[in-house]
Design a binder for these strands. Sequence first.
DNA 1: TCGTTGAATGCACACGTGTGCATTACCATT
DNA 2: AATGGTAATGCACACGTGTGCATTCAACGA
Lengths: 354, 354
Amino acid sequence: MTEGKHTPAKGDGAEPGRDLQHIVTSADVAREAGVSRSTVSRCLSGDRRISEATRLRVQETANRLGYHVNKIARSMNTRKSDLIGLVTSGLSDPFRVEFLDKLILAIQQSGYRPLVIDVSDPAQMGTSMMHLLQYQVAGVVVTSGSPPPEVGVHFLKRNVPVVLVNRAGRLEGADVINCDNVRGGEMAADLLLETGKTRFGFLNVKGGTFSGNVRGETFVSRLAPRLASGDISFTPLVCDSADYDGGFNAALKFLATPETAPNAIFCAKDHIALGLLDAARFELGLRIPEDIAVVGFDDIAAARQGAYQLTTVCQSATKLAEMTVDRLRQRIRGDALTDQRLILPVEMTCRRTA
Amino acid sequence: MTEGKHTPAKGDGAEPGRDLQHIVTSADVAREAGVSRSTVSRCLSGDRRISEATRLRVQETANRLGYHVNKIARSMNTRKSDLIGLVTSGLSDPFRVEFLDKLILAIQQSGYRPLVIDVSDPAQMGTSMMHLLQYQVAGVVVTSGSPPPEVGVHFLKRNVPVVLVNRAGRLEGADVINCDNVRGGEMAADLLLETGKTRFGFLNVKGGTFSGNVRGETFVSRLAPRLASGDISFTPLVCDSADYDGGFNAALKFLATPETAPNAIFCAKDHIALGLLDAARFELGLRIPEDIAVVGFDDIAAARQGAYQLTTVCQSATKLAEMTVDRLRQRIRGDALTDQRLILPVEMTCRRTA
DNA sequence: TCGTTGAATGCACACGTGTGCATTACCATT
DNA sequence: AATGGTAATGCACACGTGTGCATTCAACGA
């Protein structure tokens, strides 16, 4: 059986639409429109030096033939792609999911495509990041996981911009975007001080995260004067995992004796706070906020649900995503050359837990 | 200023490591190892016809030079990429997020990379799907959104396998994977019948989704004998959005007069059920399950949180993801040529709401 | 010693696109 | 009419890889 690779199929019985395998290339458009392939390329990329007549004719032909540029081939030539790598670690953290949701949308609206890399498995991390390089990504957003010092360097070496969002790491050449953890910690302290409660606590995951640690530090700093005068007390609280179960178990452990346990608790993130609330109410029979006042951080969707009505420090996932994409585009254009540290303002959202 | 593109830089002062822009290609490895570029390619792709000696030498050289294959170039040649397109519609639906989480993991472990396309904006949908084609994706998973009849066809035309998960659409040439909505609806009916409640309801979003409609239909079918005998009644309930707020508002609307309102309610999905529960308990002062029994569907993470303890039909996101990737790989290999309809078994998880 | 065989490797083409440079055609100016 | 200038378009190369085919070489049997 003979099969020519790209037989023009002039006169034989095959209809042109019947050859399902063949994908329309710019050469096909060129031949059909009676111009050179270069002209086709220039027409579709909006080159000024093309006459209006041929531009229209070529575009019409392209549409009629159903031509779509092959981005793989384009990337090979330009050594750049429309892909932006999103490095994350699972989709279990609610705020991170909200952020990714908005980020994906913003990326698409800017004409780019998100290439997600999950580094939940630390062993896979190195190779996964390399895969991003192999796809010539135009930029990288790192939102989580273990420290990326050595991998980030590989991107910067190739002039691929890197943005770190809500995480630690002072990477030479990369931009850093954080929500205002400092102000957030202060606001939480101020609010809880107003409740008149006296036994303060800060609940964070064991070992701590970058964001969580900053929130806790400024929280305590704000309490310092009252602590010094002996008006109030402070106890650091630690849970095993930074999620609902972690908060739940921590409540069982630390709030068992309500008379002496902390009664004004700031949680490093909402998800932990929700677990704490459930355990306190349903397992220990405590009233919120009468017995215990709770403040969270992030303002995830669940925080405003009727079952929780969590008072929390709100950071806008939408704005965070917009800032990220804006900065990335500046870097890709080559506009901004000096590293930048951006801070997203936060605000207190008062509901019923404090 | 003269600038040769790839000057070998034989003798001038530039150290080899100084040229940060230059990325190591297979030609570099070939030159360094003293073989041809073909040999390098064959060594790294595990071709049998290469002697052990040269294979080791080439691999050592590749590692030493830090060579990584350029997947863009490879894709251009083979007309296939390691990318698998994930078509979704936002990350607001909790179960879909859990599914995507497991799916991304499974895809990566199979050596592929997920390229996410968000079609929240219906207007962008057509072009977004086209972008997938332009990246030569090896396969496509469609998890949501408006019907894809015309777009799916484009992929199948190019022999790109398409798998539809938990959604409507009988697409010629595509595989379909669903959880056992039929059995789930029946199980929900059986459980609620056991409670002895008499006024049944099924809460679904306005217009309905494919999965939701099937669940509701079989639910009612199972109730049919008892309905016919007049033992019980049934009322269809409709909410405006398929999420927490939708369920919340529906409860306020339909459960305002508890004496006549349905007291055994099956919700099309957990997220809706959670909203219903909160409104019933905290806004209307109803007791669960004494006043109203509620059954959900999906078994999302929040369903097992202390605040809800939702009784629900469980479908495993992990298994669903594994089935999806398995099927996709079979198609990519070209093993399976006939369309397939796969059903994921479900089971009832009894907690405290029914 | 010669022909045969099989393993190991190199040559050269193809994949589809962007773009610097050369070429052509046309118009205005001298 | 000759010349200079500019707008429009084509030519040809490069991007980095996989692979069919040809080639080389050593071993082996006759």
